[in-house]
């Protein structure tokens, strides 16, 4: 009980001055350059263009980078665990158990030669020593929770037999069956159709609010983030240039955020030309807006 209150008071995740660089043929490349944020029980969006480092941040939290990557931070804490220095064994207890990640495309993220049910059960069994029967039962309950109508049948299916939207729900089921505290969703709906996307988002939305999860929602879709998330971090060239409440996105201060919003074609504002983003070199170095 005491632990419970503590979790509510302090943020679940604290990241301060995170830097990530990768080794390439031409020396080190800085992918993330000083990112700081806290995550509570909320839906936090990270938006930015390709190459801005938003996925790298998500992968760093789960330590999914190759050994050659150089990761530094003044602080990267998950509860009372230091994610920078903890052992690989501790990490295995966190990864997929207390913090899990939903990938973009179910076509590439599900094992094509394994039945859907077996894959989800595997995720559960990796962290819980229970009889197989019990695991299967949990899988069926979870499939129901992500609103798959005929769990028994879907359990026996292979990934190629399910549609994109259902594939993404299966991924969500797999990631949530261990009842994690934090879910990182990396463009979970970019590969989906409008109506399917709505349903998958609703599923995610319900589970996040019912279970009180912290959600990091990595996306490039500003319109979606504006109405789906609570808070938005805008990343440019490996840095957070603006952190803003999603509802206030219209009042964004940073010219990059404003530029991204203006460049969106809209049904409601027909313009002969779309304003093209003019990049200012000072965005790479200037201090960050709170």
């Amino acid at each position: 009980m005491t632990q419970e209150t503590q979790v509510i008071q302090s943020p679940m995740l604290q990241v301060e001055d995170l830097r990530v660089s990768f080794k390439t043929g031409e020396g080190m490349v800085d992918a993330v350059r000083g990112v700081s944020f806290n995550l509570g029980r909320e839906k936090l969006a990270i938006v930015g263009e390709s190459g801005s480092g938003k996925s790298t941040v998500g992968r760093t939290l789960l330590r999914l980078h190759p050994k050659s990557a150089r990761i530094t931070a003044t602080q990267m804490r998950f509860g009372d665990i230091d994610l920078l220095s903890c052992s690989e064994k501790t990490m295995q207890g966190i990864r997929g158990r207390r913090m899990s990640m939903i990938m973009q495309d179910p076509k590439y993220s599900l094992n094509p030669v394994m039945r859907v049910g077996d894959q989800i059960a595997e995720a559960y069994l990796a962290h819980h020593k229970v009889p197989r029967k019990e695991a299967d039962q949990r899988v069926l309950t979870m499939l129901e929770a992500v609103r798959i109508r005929d769990p028994q049948r879907v359990f026996r299916m292979y990934p190629h037999e399910v549609s994109g939207g259902m594939g993404q729900r299966i991924m969500i089921a797999m990631m949530l069956i261990t009842e994690p505290e934090i879910v990182i969703a990396d463009e979970p709906t970019s590969a989906l159709d409008v109506s399917v996307r709505l349903q998958v988002l609703a599923t995610l939305d319900d589970l996040v609010s019912q279970r009180g999860l912290g959600l990091i929602f990595i996306s490039h879709d500003l319109n979606l983030v504006r109405s789906f998330c609570d808070r938005v971090l805008v990343m440019y060239a490996g840095r957070v240039v603006e952190s803003i409440a999603a509802a206030d996105l219209d009042k964004a201060q940073h010219p990059y955020t404003q530029g991204l919003l203006a460049a969106l074609p809209s049904v409601d504002a027909r313009r002969p030309r779309l304003p093209v983003l003019q990049r200012d070199p000072s965005w790479l170095t200037e201090p960050i807006h709170a």
């Binding site: 263009e49 390709s50 490039h220 500003l222 530029g259 991204l260 460049a263 969106l264 074609p265 030309r273 779309l274 304003p275 093209v276 983003l277």
Partner: peptide, 10 residues
């Protein structure tokens, strides 16, 4: 990306 999309649409 959104910014590049704007250039191509223009």
């Amino acid at each position: 990306d959104v910014s590049v999309q704007a250039e191509i649409l223009n």
